[in-house]
Design a protein around this nucleic acid. Structure first.
Length: 269
DNA sequence: GACCAGGTGTCCG
DNA sequence: CGGACACCTGGT
């Protein structure tokens, strides 16, 4: 058991900031997450901290980097000008968000699924996909790892049909095949700069600029990436007259995007 | 029981 | 090149 209470760390905000679909709150203050083929349970503590059900070695090796706990988010928050009332409010509201370091393949498939789907529908599809084609966890066989590229590529489109994926089946099957066959090397492209990485991801059918930027931000920790979805566009139209000063946040626009997104759709939850 | 949902690819003008 | 439009199907 590891207990932490760092600044700018709010698991519920992270869960609802649109980056994670396998972090669940199973009861008030009780969280479960599947990643690295492990089931991690986290509980809130009475004084606002979090108790991780793992030992110190595992925490330092897996979860500290996963939750980006070595980054000082205070420096991002401090860069937001007080004259920008909207962003200041959004940042205050979302100050506990961190950009998770998630698996690139999982992000690729998850955000292909996300198109034209509500958040709850995305969760449903991802869960169905894991139950159908992911490996049961050794320690918790009722939970399933995210499927490997090989497992998805082997299914063919019709095998994927039953996961409520609709027209995205073809995209997913093609993406899984590209990765499984080595036409797209998700590990190798991590060495590319942002522009080249974006171009590689855009080669995948069903991946456009928005999905590619989500994969960059959440799967490659490219925090300069700024995915524009309908919520972000709505915020920019409403509060910035359609023109957001992105250059002001060069290098960490993705963090700002998370504050904007989380605040912009807070009534939706 | 319509109607919309965190987009993309394609086809038109 | 900007603007429509279809695409599947679960949620609300």
């Amino acid at each position: 058991m590891i207990i932490i209470n760092p600044p700018h760390f709010d698991l519920r905000a992270i869960m609802n900031s649109g980056q994670s679909f396998r972090l669940r709150e199973t009861a008030p203050g009780m969280f479960e997450l599947v990643a690295f083929g492990r089931l991690l349970r986290i509980e809130t503590t009475p004084n606002g901290g979090y108790a991780f059900a793992c030992d110190a070695e595992e925490f330092d090796r897996l979860w500290r980097p996963y939750f980006d706990l070595d980054e000082d988010y205070g420096r991002f928050l401090a860069a937001i000008p007080s004259e920008d009332a909207f962003l200041s409010a959004a940042a205050a509201y979302g100050q506990g968000i961190r950009i998770l370091r998630q698996d690139a393949f999982e992000m690729l498939i998850t955000f292909i699924i996300s198109q034209r789907k509500s958040i709850s529908a995305i969760r449903t599809s991802v869960e169905m996909l894991c139950e159908a084609y992911g490996e049961p966890l050794a320690e918790a066989p009722a939970h399933f790892a995210f499927p490997t590229p090989q497992a998805l590529a082997a299914q063919g489109e019709d095998g994927l049909r039953r996961c409520a994926l609709g027209y995205r089946c073809g995209y997913i099957q093609a993406a899984a095949r590209m990765v499984a066959e080595g036409a797209l090397d998700l590990h190798a492209i991590a060495a590319l700069d942002d522009d080249a990485l974006l171009a590689e991801l855009l080669r995948v059918p069903g991946v456009g600029v928005k999905v590619a930027n989500c994969v960059m931000l959440f799967g490659y920790h490219r925090i300069a990436a700024f995915p524009r979805d309908v919520w972000i566009n709505r915020v920019i139209d409403r509060h910035y007259g359609g023109d957001f000063p992105l250059e002001r946040y060069a290098g960490f626009a993705g963090v700002v995007q998370q504050y904007m997104f989380y605040h912009g759709r807070k009534k939706a939850d």
